[in-house]
């Protein structure tokens, strides 16, 4: 009887790969590892602090020197946060606005990108140039025109106004990215094969191109969702009244009203709640997102 040696053990391990044959090589490797750890610490410390504080009693948070590892944990800050602000309502608002904006953007971007990728027509280059140009304009310069535009349409402090703004902001990037994806992942022959097999243009798109390009489409949808979910600027300008606020604006208002100082743990609990959906979406679809964003960058 033989005992199978796991592959991980038969491969050169981390420490074995740190060959000591060359001193300068060892120094470089140690330096790289040290910098990586320092960067990770820098990036993850606020996240850890937020998570830790959201489970700590208030009296433990305020002590000096600060307690790095809580001795006592409680879920009370979460219930308290929902008592102080309509946290779950804000989360639902954010979800509604973000999912709707992502859905509408993706549908429009798919249609526009497919046409730009497949059909040659007069003005196509100009349209592409204009789309690229809108991506180059800093967001802050659009504040006044868009605010007054939404106001004049009577859509201020409405979900529709904010969704309209998000769709408008995300479309240029979404169209450019999906156009590249359609061109690289779905060669014209695929569509032609479907046309010969009996499909019309729409059926070929629906039955063949769409499923083939699903990773790219999902990446665009997720990217749009995350942008909308994490947005504070536009939500605070266009939808800042009553219980219709998004979670980001709700947390901002809570902090400004003194909640961030008086109820630090509840404030942090609300922050965790605002972070989790984006984090969950990202963790589950990270592979698609990376694949979708980088597709077409190299010819395979």
């Amino acid at each position: 009887m033989t005992i199978a040696v796991p592959n991980a053990l038969s491969r050169p391990g981390f420490f074995q790969r740190l060959s000591f044959a060359n001193k300068s090589d060892v120094f470089t490797r140690v330096l790289v590892i040290a910098i990586t750890i320092a960067l990770l610490f820098y990036i993850l410390l606020p996240v850890y602090w937020m998570l830790k504080t959201s489970f700590q009693p208030n009296q433990e948070i305020r002590v000096l020197p600060p307690i790095w590892f809580p001795t006592e944990t409680t879920a009370h800050p979460y219930t308290n946060a929902n008592r102080l602000i309509p946290m779950w309502r804000y989360v639902l608002n954010s979800l509604f606005v973000s999912v709707t904006a992502a859905g509408i953007s993706t549908i429009i971007a798919c249609s526009a990108a497919y046409v730009l990728a497949r059909f040659r027509f007069p003005g196509a280059t100009i349209i592409l140039g204009l789309i690229l140009l809108t991506n180059l304009i800093p967001a802050i310069t659009r504040v006044f025109p868009i605010y007054f535009f939404i106001q004049n349409m009577g859509l201020l402090n409405s979900y529709v106004g904010l969704i309209l703004a998000y769709v408008g902001f995300s479309l240029p990037f979404a169209v450019l990215m999906l156009r590249g994806y359609f061109e690289s992942a779905a060669p014209p022959e695929l569509e032609e094969a479907a046309l010969i097999d009996g499909c019309g243009y729409f059926e070929a798109f629906w039955r063949v191109i769409l499923p083939v390009c699903l990773p790219g489409i999902a990446a665009v949808a997720i990217f749009t969702f995350l942008n909308a979910w994490n947005d504070f600027l536009w939500a605070s300008l266009l939808l800042n009244q009553g219980e219709m606020k998004t979670i980001q604006v709700g947390i901002g208002d809570f902090a400004q009203e003194g909640g961030g100082v008086q109820y630090v743990n509840a404030f942090m609990a609300a922050c965790v709640v605002a972070t989790v959906p984006a984090l969950v979406v990202f963790v589950f679809v990270q592979r698609w997102l990376v694949g979708g964003l980088t597709a077409g960058s190299v010819k395979t």
């Binding site: 060669p187 022959e189 695929l190 032609e192 094969a193 046309l195 010969i196 097999d197 009996g198 019309g200």
Partner: peptide
């Protein structure tokens, strides 16, 4: 249109779905 010509085509790139 292609679907009404009663033809079948094999492409250089195979164009399999």
């Amino acid at each position: 249109p292609p679907k009404k010509r009663d033809i079948a085509m094999v492409f250089q790139s195979y164009a399999l779905y």
